[in-house]
Every structure is written in C-alpha cells, then in structure tokens.
Write a protein that binds this DNA or RNA. Structure first.
Length: 939
DNA sequence: GACCCGACTTGTTCCTACCATG
DNA sequence: CATGGTAGGAACAAGTCGGGTC
C-alpha cells in the first residue's frame, strides 16, 4: 500500500473536524480522519497508521510501507524524536482534570483501605501460618500498588517520556484516554486489592477478638491453600492459562506469582541446555521482505521446510474435521455418548417432551397453533439431525421491527436559552437538543470531542437561522429541558399501580406480536425487535465519534428478511421498506445501517433460539476439539520460537500470549474508532520487559487498552525464549510501532486453521476459559460442603475465569456503603456470639456441677451458639463473594465462554439446583446443555 | 492479495422491577 | 409502606472472522 501520505501539515485542517483527537495534530502530522480519500489508505492497517504517524512525526521523509522494515534502522538512528513532542496544554489540562477526578476516588478508597490495614496486622500473623495466597496477594498488592503509584506519580517522567516520543496523535490518545482510563482501571484494581485488604482486615478484627469466625476464614484459607497445593504439584506449564491478578485473589491462588514463576522455571529448565547465544540469528533478509511478499514466502515455507510434523498433524486433523458434524462429535468424545443416552432416558422419564414438532413434515402453521396453546413447549432441536449446508432456515415469518415512538415536542413552558435569551427551537433542533439535555449530568458532556461532535451534528438539523445563531455550546442553556426530563422520569417512576400494569400489558402485547417469529415451524423469541431510537452516539473510551447524532431510523432504511412464502411484514402506514429479501443463508430478520459508524445493525433471534444455541454448542465443541490437540499446538509454537523466519517467530510468540493470557486476536482498526488493541495489534509501548521484577525473572508487563477501552494490566513472567524474542521484536522500534509487525489476525488465523480445522484465535479464549472453570471447580468444590459454600466455590471458579479474560466492571455505586452495612451486621453477629459464648461457659460450668435442668439449658445455649455461628458464616460468605466481585463481571464469561455443560454437570454431581447458577434467561439459553449434560460430563 | 464489508459474537453500562429491610 | 439495593435484562457498542471484490 502506498501509505505515502499525501497529507502533510496542511492536512490537519481537515482533520480537525473530528475534534479532539486531532487537536494534537498540531500540524505535525496529517489528520487522517475525515477525508474519505485518506480513509482508505488509513484504513489499510493500524500498523501503517502508526507508522505514518511516526513518520510524520519525525518529520522525516515519508516512507512507503514497503520500506517499512527499513524504518527500523532509521528509527534507531533517530531515536530522539521524543523531545519535539509535547501535548498541547489543553490536553494536559484535560488529563490532569481526569486524573484529579480519579485521584479523588483514590483518596476515598485509600481511606477505606487504611482503615482496613490497621486491622490487618493481627490477622496477618494468624494467616501467615497457612501461607495462604492472601499473603502472597498482599505482597503482590504492595508491588502492584507501588508500581501503580509509581506510574501515576511519575506520569510526567518515564511514562510521559514514552508518550512524548511517540507521535502526537498517540500522545494525545494515550494521554487523555489512556491516562484516564488507566487511572480508572488502576484505581479499580487498587480498589480491588484494597477491598481484599479490607476484607481480610475485617477478618482480622474478628480474629483479634478471638478466632471466632475461624470457621469461614479457615475454610477460605483451606480452599486457597488446597488449590495452591494442587497447583504446586502440577507445575503450570504453558497449558495453564495465567490468571490475571490471581495473586491477589484467593481463589486463584495457584496462578499467581508462584505458578507463573514455576512455569518460568519450568520452561527455563527446558531451555537450559540451549544457550541463548545460540538463538538462531534473525534472518535479516527475511526481515526486509514486506508483508505481502512475506506471506507468499511463508506459504512456501510452510509447505516445505517448515514443519513436517505440523503437516502431518494437519492431515490427521483435517480428516477428523471433515467428517465433523454434530453426530460426529460422538466420534471424538466418548464422554458425550453416555450422556446422550442418559439424556434420552431422562427425557422419556420426564416426558415433558411436550410437543416436538420436529421432523415430522407437519405444516408450520399447525405446529404453531399447537405451540401457542402449549405454552411451555421446548423444542429439543439438539436432538434433531443437523443440516450443514449453510442454510439457516427454510421458513421464516415475522412482523418486522418496532420503531421508536415519534418525537413529542416539549411543553411550551420548557424553554431553551441561548446566550441568556429564550429561543424557541424548531422541532428537529429541539429533539436533538433534548438528547444532549438528558445527558447533562453525564461525564460525556465534559469531553470536548463529545461536545464538538454534538454541536456539529446539531447544527446540521437546525434551521438556517438557528444555525446562524447557535455557534457556541457553552452559551446554550439546557437546564430547563434537563429538569423537565428529570421530572418526567420522576413521574414515570411514581406511576400508580394501575398505570404500571397498563403499561406492562401494553408492552407484553407488543412483545407478543413483534417479539416472536416463526422459523421452520417453531415459534421463537426474537432478541431485539425494537429499532434503536435516535440519540447521541456514546462510544466507549476516547471514541472520536462520540456525541454524534444517531439519527432516527425509518422504514425506508430497513431491510426485511423472511421467507418468500411467508406473510411479509407490513411497513408502518405511509412508509415502505427499503428492501425485502429472502436470504436463508443469514439469521437476521431485519437490518439497517446506523449512520454514525456506517455499521449494519440487525434484528436477530434470542439466545434461547435454535439458531443461536446451535452455534453456541458448536463453539464449545470446537473448543473441546482444541483441547484434544492443544499439547501439539503448544509444542508447535514453542518450537517456532526458534524459527528462522521472523514472521513465524512473531506468530509463535503471539500465539503463546493468546493461549496463555487469553488475549483477543487484535484486529486492525481504523482511525474512526477508539485506539484499542488486542494481541496482534499490540504496540511496543504496550509492553515492558524486565529481566527481573519483584524477584521474578523475565517479566513482561502488559499495559494496554483492550476491547471497550478496558485496561489490561498484567505482569507475567514468561519463558526466557519468549522474552528474548520480544527483545528482538522491539529492537529499533519506536513505542508506536507494532510489536508484531509481521503479523495480523488473518495470517494468524490462517495458520491456526492449518493446525486444526475451525481453529481461530478466539477459540483459545473459549477453551482456556472453560478448561479453567472445570479445573477450578474440581479444585474448589468440597463435596461435603453445604450448598451455599458450593455456590461460593462456583462463583470463585467463575471469577477465576473472569479474571483470566479481564472482564471488568465499574464498581457498583453503593458498594462501599453496602459493604459497610454488611460488615456492621457481621460485627453485630460476632458480638452476639461473644455473648453467647460467655453464656455458654457459665452455663457449662453450672451444668457440670448442676442438675439436669442446667444441662439442658447448656445444650440449648450450645445450639443457639451454633446457629449464630452458622449465620455468621453465611454473612461472611456473602461478604467475601460480594467484595471479590466488586470489579469483576462474571456475566460475560458465564454467558459466552464457559461451556454450560460443565456447570450443569457440576450442579448435577453436587446436588446444587441449577437455578442457583443460572437464572431464568440463562437457563433458557442453555437449555440444550441442561438437557444434555449428565453429572459426568467432562469438557 | 489487499481491502472492504457483512454477519455474528462478545462486552459494558444503564435502567427498572422487584425484593428485603427497617 | 417507603426506601434502598440489586439482579436481570435491554440497549447498543465493539470485537472477531470469513468471504467477496477488484
């Protein structure tokens, strides 16, 4: 690609349209953003993008991408570009503001923490005995927080320097977004740690007041240490995904420092005999081959010299794959067979197998009626034969989507003011103003990108006169409108019972009519049958398009997809559909293109549907298949660490990260999106290499923003060879250069497909998540424990996965408060127990010398004490659970990564009602698994 | 083979109905 | 009965990946 950026300094003008992002452009480099012309070239690849930036930044001659590789040399010689770069003062302000905000958070949290810390010391003594990972965790905490604080405090030093050295754009981004997000995440993390501390401290408190609560904390410790032991015994190799933050999480005790270290040790020992110096020198000639050429080359290589074993593997696997259909799963998982049998027997038993319209050729309509009458019918599609011809349905009928209600103008007493003067807006302008007014209290409105975008788009819908007048957002007074919307929602909240009921009924009506479709003779729930209402686009992170107007979708924008022979949905009167098509190779019922990002949006089925369920099932089957060949694949990529070809090496290291850390693939993104990365798109600035850190060798510190601009921070001891490779990869590169400059997701996935049919980068995530759950469940579940304890164990296993996958969430608003309350409760309970114990002592004394009556009384008191202790235990479990979950979102992994059959099997095996694990929706979604998996299911 | 885009999965946040609690 | 907290679900953004096109 000729990344020759025609744009140079002058171009930044156009770039500015997009707001903030380009503010840093400062004429130093082109703002690619706006002009479509540029877009294409920019879109090309983020790699190029960054390169461009650097190039421009350097102000040196432009390199065409083909000379990319040469860049290295150039860069090395001109490593100094840093100094030239400073972020605009604006940015600085911005950032510092943000920082301040999060600092505030910090401080309040700090208070919390310090309180806890006070309590902590006694406890720690107590704990040390068990060598629980809590201790380790604490250490880790310290390390982390110290490193964190270092980072924060030295934001002007090392970090800033780094940023400075990178291009402006980058700088900007990394500063505002990065810093903020980082701060946020950092603080979240800190919080997390703190909370743990808190947690433990509270325990300490108690322990100091006598190890009354021993029971629960001991249990926890036990679990922890047990899990540790288990882990210790089996050194975690590559195949043990590293759980992030494990170190501070009791439940993941195994993973943390120890395991990772052990893995390192292990690997090291493996390589001891191969002195580093013997690392095959990187083939320089290879290096200079541009990606495209390289690709071709790679092919050759892989066909020939590369790895014969691989090929063999390939072949054998392919065979398997080819035959793979659902029935074939039995072939490779014997474990499944028995289950199926069980299943069917169960089925016959519980002949809830109401109506199974299934394979009989009965007319869809008949079936439909039948189903309507028998509401609770379950379509056991998973017992049917699967067709695999790419068609998703043969019959599809639905009513079309539901459109957003039309705009209702504001009452005349609600006014808008511009520059202090009342101004009656035209309806369109008013509607859009309303979108902004609703968000007045939201953080978004403090972001200049948001405001700029909003104003630009708002003015587009204004009448010429309005547009002429309204040019400055800061002169707009939306307060009355805002207040009005608040009062409306207030009113809505206070609706009377009848009103609410009426509303509910109405919604149900709509749901009934539009919320279902008929597909291949079955009535199935639709997921999102409502078309998104107009509003302001809220991108996540530092999205360059935030604040833009998402316009109202009209029937004329909407594509309808259904059977030719179905009753075709009617468009709202006076309108027509953009198109009606009959494409049975796709699963959507309707689609439209959203105007902000030009992305297609779809109306699709609910997760409980066959279409989704089947896909889900398939996903886990692929992951299980990976399980079967993961060892080979690992072997394979480890071998590739020594490959001559740089591309292969990079691929191997990337794969290692994906496998071990469950990173996402990391597609390239264009400039119109927030700057986030995944594995393949990691840049040099996202990792730090430490030969030694906190007593561990070869530590790689990852710090980047991933999907949804969620920060990923992880310190991972890696194998020496990986480390050395990384050193090579970053050699002579700038911070903003791609770490894996020879790699992208396509190449990676192509390679993976060769290793195992159906294998892609994300399968590793699924696989590692599921396998982790299974292992953790095995480790953490005490067969004799009570159901609540088992549930805690489950949640902990789940949490381990969430941590692995970096599923975070904002700390719930009232968290600290509710924790306080809970703690008070616990304390009260403890006091009660204290009393009860004293009572008991006296009573027992009395009983010893005394009468039957006294003995009885003593027994009673004993029982009372037991009861209290039980209650306390429960509360403490609750506390632990809630606290540990504060910043971790369990839902995503539960819904998307964990083979539901593992959970189902666990429930069945341990007598835990499935309802305790899956709520109604989840049970609907996983009906197939619930029906299918017996207690012996193994992933 | 680069590029683009369609289709589908994954992910977080926001809202609200519901529930426990005082 | 009010209140506050929360689970659950809706909303919708943001990924992944494959395939078509030029």
């Amino acid at each position: 690609m000729s990344v020759e950026n025609p744009a140079s300094d002058n171009d930044c003008e156009s770039g500015k349209v997009n707001g903030n992002k380009n503010e840093h452009v400062n004429g130093m480099h082109n703002g690619y953003s706006s002009s479509d012309k540029h877009k294409s070239s920019h879109k090309s690849s983020s790699k190029d993008k960054h390169r461009d930036k650097d190039r421009d930044h350097k102000g040196s001659s432009k390199h065409s991408s083909s000379s990319r590789d040469k860049d290295k040399d150039k860069h090395s010689s001109s490593k100094e570009h840093s100094s030239s770069h400073k972020s605009s003062s604006k940015d600085k302000e911005h950032n510092s503001e943000k920082r301040d905000r999060s600092d505030k958070d910090h401080s309040s949290r700090d208070k919390e923490r310090s309180d806890k810390d006070k309590h902590r010391s006694d406890k720690d003594k107590h704990r040390e005995k068990s060598k629980s990972d809590k201790d380790r965790r604490d250490e880790k905490d310290k390390n982390k927080s110290s490193s964190d604080s270092k980072k924060t405090s030295s934001s002007s030093s090392s970090r800033d320097k780094e940023h400075k050295s990178s291009s402006k754009d980058k700088d900007h981004k990394s500063k505002s977004k990065d810093e903020k997000d980082k701060d946020r995440h950092r603080s979240d993390k800190d919080k997390h740690h703190r909370d743990k501390d808190k947690h433990s401290s509270s325990k300490d408190k108690n322990s100091s007041s006598k190890n009354k609560e021993k029971s629960s904390s001991e249990r926890n410790e036990k679990i922890k240490s047990e899990s540790q032991n288990v882990i210790k015994d089996e050194p975690m190799e590559v195949d043990q995904p590293v759980l992030k933050r494990e170190q501070d999480d009791s439940d993941e005790g195994y993973a943390g420092a120890n395991t990772t270290v052990s893995s390192c040790d292990y690997s090291m020992s493996q390589f001891k005999d191969e002195p580093l110096s013997e690392l095959p020198p990187d083939d320089e000639s290879e290096e200079d081959i541009p990606l495209t050429a390289r690709k071709a080359k790679k092919r050759h290589v892989s066909d020939g010299e590369e790895d014969i074993p691989l090929l063999q593997r390939k072949k054998s696997k392919k065979k398997v794959k080819k035959e793979e259909t659902y029935e074939d799963y039995d072939d490779y998982e014997e474990d499944e067979k028995p289950k199926k049998k069980k299943k069917s027997s169960e089925k016959t038993k519980s002949v809830k197998v109401k109506s199974e319209p299934i394979d009989d050729g009965i007319s869809p309509n008949k079936r439909k009626k039948k189903q309507d009458t028998e509401t609770e019918q379950v379509w056991k599609w998973w017992e049917e034969e699967k067709t695999d011809d790419g068609t998703k349905w043969t019959f599809l009928e639905h009513k079309g989507p539901v459109f957003a209600p039309p705009y209702e103008p504001l009452p005349s007493n609600v006014k808008f003011y511009y520059d202090g003067k009342e101004l009656k807006l035209s309806e369109d302008a008013e509607e859009v103003a309303g979108f902004y007014a609703r968000m007045l209290e939201h953080d978004y409105t403090t972001k200049s990108v948001f405001n700029t975008n909003f104003l630009t788009d708002w003015r587009k819908v204004m009448t010429p006169e309005e547009a002429k007048l309204i040019k400055d957002l800061s002169k707009c007074n939306f307060k009355e409108m805002h207040a009005y919307f608040q009062s409306v929602s207030e009113k809505n909240r206070n609706r009377s019972k009848e009103e609410k009921a009426a509303l509910k009924a109405k919604n149900e009506e709509i749901q009934k009519e539009y919320g279902f479709c008929t597909i291949d003779g079955h009535k199935e729930k639709i997921g999102n049958f409502r078309i998104e209402p107009p509003g302001l686009f809220r991108g996540r992170g530092e999205h360059p398009k935030m604040g833009k107007l998402k316009r109202r979708v009209m029937p004329e924008d909407v594509l309808i997809n259904c059977s030719k022979d179905s009753k075709i949905p009617k468009p709202p009167s006076g309108h027509k559909w953009r198109e009606v098509r009959h494409d049975n190779t796709v699963t959507w019922l309707a689609s439209w293109t959203e105007n902000v990002q030009q992305q297609a949006k779809y109306v699709m089925l609910n997760p409980s549907s066959k279409l989704k369920g089947e896909k889900d099932w398939q996903k886990y089957e692929t992951a299980r298949k990976l399980h079967k060949c993961i060892d080979k694949i690992r072997e394979n990529y480890r071998a590739d660490w020594k490959a001559k070809e740089m591309q292969v090496r990079q691929r191997a290291v990337a794969l290692y990260f994906i496998d071990r850390l469950a990173l996402r693939a990391g597609n390239e993104k264009d400039d119109e999106q927030a700057d986030t990365v995944g594995c393949c798109s990691l840049r040099v600035e996202h990792i730090q290499l430490h030969k030694e850190k906190d007593g561990k060798e070869y530590v790689v510190v990852f710090d980047f923003l991933g999907k949804d601009s969620i920060r990923y921070y992880n310190e991972v001891p890696v194998e020496k060879r990986v480390f050395k490779n990384l050193e090579i990869f970053i050699e002579n590169k700038k911070d903003s250069d791609d770490l894996f400059d020879r790699l992208n997701t396509q190449t990676l996935n192509e390679h993976l497909k060769d290793l195992m049919p159906g294998l892609t980068a994300k399968v590793f995530r699924t696989y590692n998540a599921s396998i982790t759950l299974q292992k953790q469940l095995d480790e953490l579940t005490d067969g004799d424990a009570s159901v609540p304890e088992k549930i805690l164990a489950y949640n902990r296993a789940n949490r381990a996965v969430a941590i692995l996958c970096n599923h975070q969430r904002a700390v719930p608003k009232g968290h600290s408060k509710s924790m306080e309350a809970l703690k008070e409760k616990i304390q009260a309970k403890r006091d009660q127990i204290d009393e009860a114990e004293e009572d008991l002592q006296q009573a027992s004394k009395a009983a010893k010398r005394g009468s039957v009556k006294e003995k009885l009384a003593c027994d009673k008191k004993k029982k009372a004490l037991e009861r209290l202790k039980d209650q306390l235990k429960k509360l403490e479990l609750q506390e632990t659970d809630r606290d540990e979950n504060k910043t971790i979102a369990l839902g995503t992994s539960k819904l998307n990564y964990l083979d539901p059959r593992i959970s189902v099997a666990w429930c069945k095996k341990h007598g835990v009602p499935i309802e305790k694990i899956y709520n109604k929706t989840q049970r609907d979604k996983f009906r197939w698994a619930i029906d299918m998996a017996g207690p012996d299911y193994v992933f």
